[in-house]
Write a protein that binds this DNA or RNA. Structure first.
Length: 572
RNA sequence: CGGGGCGUGGCUCAGCCUGGUAGAGCACCUGGUUCGGGACCAGGGGGUCGGAGGUUCAAAUCCUCUCGCCCCGACCA
């Protein structure tokens, strides 16, 4: 591609509405433009890289025995009503209407569509397993689109679905997908970790997230020396038992106006860990009191999983008064009506004296002993791990880092096949429900993640595998006839060898060309200038290391082609 | 949805407080000089000041409403 003919609008300055490095660089390098909040055009350069990522995904999926198809984006609401997700998915689902006022969903994910397809065509255990995927535009009316293509409302995703006779068959497919995913991200040149994760709105049981490590990542990851790694929504930690304390008397203390953990602990001169924070939630109609130590955060994802409800919400002040007979800020588990379900965090210990709200205005209870003053009927892991907590597996300390979620794999089980009636006949002629798995990769997000991880102050540093082009030729002075001639012949030589090449044939100052080349970030730059030509050489400059190799003019094309081929092999 | 901020040539922004000629840098066009890390000179084109209403002799500037965008908190590939 000649830069004089290319549509690659580079920018000297950072766009004001971009925060993230990858977002800024995609705009500045002429890869991406915004049309509206969370809605973007991929320009030629951005689209080339996106297609390369998609192609890597395709190759690894096909290698793992999956088959590509294309499902419709637009789906009738009835399909979504079958699984209950028309109601459950919430505002994130785009819901267009047709001219007859019929409801439709713009696909944010495609379990319904694929399950509908499979249930009508799969009848026998002989048809299974089946692993189907697509690379398709997805629509999600994100609560807050941000960071460019990282969290968009319209984005490209690979989503795959597997169908099995039983759990064991699912298990082997799941493992194969896990390996395939690792291969995809490795080939994209990414550093990543696989973490145990929360299944969120998609539902199901076991699942893992593929996280590209990046300080700017939105996801928090806990990990430890033994290899344990989990997202903050699901990370467990080992509870360290406190030594038993002498039993204190249960007493009521006046705590006028002291509502929060900070206020009460300061007022009473106690550590926050001494307090029990009692949070009243409503899971639909059912009220549940969640009791956690004052120094820990309740983890809503863990609570949601425990209650089997997508989004339990905190009770309002009025609801608290009605259910506990005490005002907001003074709730506690002692002396509540026994029909109110209470769940205690696993880190709350017998043999320790706690402080809780007294369920009356301006009063707290001190010397609360669990087991004596309040009976624990239900215990669960309700709190978010913290850096420095002990690993649930090896006991070593948990470290906190950040990552970008680029892939997510789930064992769904019967979650969709059951309500949608996707069944098959086994060898004995019994009708059984199909067992499913689902697997996603954010393709456009992966492009952003590559940039997030591979850049410097001058611009993008593409790995060969996903670079829009491999070689970027810079003739220093296009007014110089020999420079121009050598550049043209090298370009022709590379095109002949099927090397993806950009030729900067613009009549620009050298500085401007170098800056643009660094910004766009092709892995190999060839500089052709009068200086080198005097010695009959051109310079091959590695974008990543900055190292320069001088190569004779006549050998340059072959040298570039060889280097590109060798580097591509490393990432294949 | 709650809290904060911003909408002025393609981009980055000044002007608004204190109403009276719409400006700068970059980009773009023409001519010339220049050419190893975002050149210089000369000339030139381009703006419903987000939109609507109001106040006023007069509104980018003041008031009201509205739309869009960004940031911080509740979703996820």
């Amino acid at each position: 591609m000649r830069l004089t003919q290319a549509f690659i609008p580079t920018l000297k300055e950072d766009p004001t509405d971009a925060e993230l490095i990858s977002h800024k660089l995609m705009i500045r390098a002429g890869m991406l433009r915004k049309l509206a909040a969370g809605i973007y055009t991929l320009l030629p350069l951005g689209w080339r890289t996106t297609r390369k990522v998609a192609q890597i995904v395709r190759e690894e999926m096909d290698r793992a025995g999956c088959q590509e198809l294309l499902l419709p984006i637009l789906m009738p609401a009835e399909l979504w009503r079958e699984t209950g997700r028309w109601e459950k998915y919430g505002k994130e689902l785009f819901r267009p209407r047709d001219r007859h006022e019929r409801d439709y969903a713009l696909g944010p994910t495609h379990e319904e569509a694929i399950t509908d397809l499979v249930r009508t065509h799969v009848r026998s255990y002989r048809d299974l397993p089946l692993n189907l995927y697509q690379i398709q535009t997805k629509f999600r009316d994100e609560i807050r689109p941000r960071f460019g293509v990282m969290r968009a409302r319209e984005f490209l995703m690979k989503d795959g679905y597997s169908f099995h006779v039983d759990e064991a068959q699912l298990e082997s497919a799941y493992e194969r997908m896990r390996e395939a995913y690792a291969a995809v991200f490795r080939r994209c040149g990414l550093e990543f970790v696989v973490v145990e994760a929360d299944s969120g709105a998609i539902g199901g049981d076991v699942n893992h997230e593929f996280m590209v490590t990046a300080a700017s990542g939105e996801s928090l990851i806990f990990s430890s020396a033994c290899g344990y790694a989990a997202s903050s929504e699901s990370a467990k930690y080992r509870v360290i038992p406190h030594s038993a304390e002498p039993e204190a008397r249960l007493e009521e203390r006046s705590t006028p106006g002291q509502k929060t953990v900070e206020e009460v602990s300061a007022f009473l001169g106690l550590e926050p860990s001494r307090l029990l924070k009692s949070l009243l939630f409503l899971a639909g109609e059912e009220p549940v009191l969640a009791v956690v130590p004052g120094d820990r955060e309740l983890n809503e994802a863990k609570l949601a999983r425990l209650l089997g409800h997508a989004a339990p919400r905190l009770a309002t002040a009025q609801e608290i008064e009605a259910l506990t007979c005490g005002p907001l800020g003074f709730t506690g588990p002692v002396g509540l009506p026994s029909r109110l379900r209470s769940v205690f965090d696993v880190s709350i210990q017998e043999g320790r004296n706690y402080v809780t709200g007294a369920n009356k205005r301006d009063a707290h209870l001190v010397g609360v002993r669990v087991g004596r003053d309040v009976r624990i009927e239900e215990r669960a892991d309700l709190t978010t791990a913290r850096e420095g907590d002990c690993c649930p597996r090896c006991g070593d300390t948990l470290k906190l880092s950040r990552g970008i979620e680029v892939g997510h794999i789930f064992k769904l089980g019967l979650k969709y096949s059951e309500p949608m009636g996707a069944r098959y006949l086994d060898a004995e002629g019994n009708e059984r429900t199909i067992v499913m798995g689902t697997y996603g990769i954010g393709v456009t997000r992966t492009v952003a993640a590559v940039i997030e991880q591979l850049h410097d102050e001058n611009g993008i540093i593409w790995p060969y595998s996903v670079a829009p082009y491999h070689v970027h030729i810079v003739p220093v002075n296009t007014a110089h006839a020999e420079t121009r001639a050598v550049a043209e012949s090298l370009y022709a030589g590379l095109v002949d060898r099927d090397v993806e090449t950009i030729l900067d044939d613009r009549d620009e100052r050298p500085g401007a060309k170098f800056k643009d080349a660094d910004l766009m970030g092709m892995p190999l730059r060839v500089t052709i200038g009068e200086k080198g030509l005097k010695d009959g050489v051109v310079e091959l400059r590695d974008r990543k290391s900055g190292t320069v190799e001088r190569v004779a003019v006549g050998e340059a094309a072959e040298a570039c082609a060889k280097r590109v081929a060798a580097e591509l092999t490393k990432l294949s």
